[in-house]
Design a protein around this nucleic acid. Sequence first.
DNA 1: CAACTACCTGAACAAGTGTTCCACAAGTTT
DNA 2: AAACTTGTGGAACACTTGTTCAGGTAGTTG
Lengths: 192, 192
Amino acid sequence: MELQKVDGRKARGEKKRRAIVEATLRVIERDGVAGVTHRSVAREAGVPTTAPTYYFATLDDLLIATLLWSAEELCDDMLKIVASGGCAREIARSLAKAVNENRSRTLAEYELYLLAGRRPELRPAARRWLDRAVEVARPADPVAFRAFLAAIDGLLMQGLIADVAPNEDELEPIVSFLIRGCDDLTAAPREQ
Amino acid sequence: MELQKVDGRKARGEKKRRAIVEATLRVIERDGVAGVTHRSVAREAGVPTTAPTYYFATLDDLLIATLLWSAEELCDDMLKIVASGGCAREIARSLAKAVNENRSRTLAEYELYLLAGRRPELRPAARRWLDRAVEVARPADPVAFRAFLAAIDGLLMQGLIADVAPNEDELEPIVSFLIRGCDDLTAAPREQ
DNA sequence: CAACTACCTGAACAAGTGTTCCACAAGTTT
DNA sequence: AAACTTGTGGAACACTTGTTCAGGTAGTTG
């Protein structure tokens, strides 16, 4: 009991810290990275103006913390897409969901990508889902798999700038084309 | 002579206007959309602080004008990639150039994409190269072609967040995989 | 030449920014 | 209990932002 006893103050603080990060992500989803200010985040999180400054030395630190955290969600989302049993229908469904129901989240995730392009420290986080995808899929044909991963990014981005986002029926044939040849994406290690 | 005589004042104004747009694009390439302010643009263009406001009612108008204009360059660049004679080597070379020599320009172009995601008025411009690509290529297999176009976006984006951007040798096999089946992308109807 | 017009800009303003500071509240330890 | 640590938040500061505006300047016209 005494062992895992933690300072109640720190516990509450840590909770608030996470609340601030989550509020920041909501702001990014709504208004983009440009809309992130100490005050807008504080308002969104329902904390005083100075709270974000207290928990994060600088606005940049808050942004980076938020994006690193959101990168894990990106990773999960993407892996869910990739590992949809290698079935084109499932993959197409996930992609369609990303550009429709989860549009703002997807948009936020690509803001992360872009920011990573300018800030090397964010790159490992932004790239993580790509590395993990290769790990879990163990593709028989690495080249085909890289093409597949690239196309996922492209389909999502292009889906975000379409007048009406594509649905799963439109996406399915394209996905089919991409995964033909890597019949079962997760198959490789068996015979080798 | 008298016919095409234009007010010298207006001519100078139009020139300055274009200089401001070009300066804005340079700022975007260097610091991203976030770095665009009346003052930063004015400094870059070597004009007084109020000049951008004079020529563009609002900062947003300036940003939109710049992005619409840059979208034409994006279109040209992308078409150059797509229409590299349908040869994988050429396409790979163009892609490698985009993420190396022209890295900052490519980054700026994806800022346009992302902004278009949030501002419907920018979407037609951002999408233009996709439509034009289909026009000029007249692909025999539209599905394969869409997959190819998506993969271009993905390869570029992923190239931008890599620790070391890929070179043409790494890209070539992936491109080859993508255009297999659409042997000659520009082949379909040869009836001129 | 002067009159006119259209373009241009320096100074200024209100609003919003990141951040600091300090008094104080809440929790923990001695 | 007192002494300490940690969390909290209102006021304030220096600074940057977008935008306005009145006066000035260059180009055109009579």
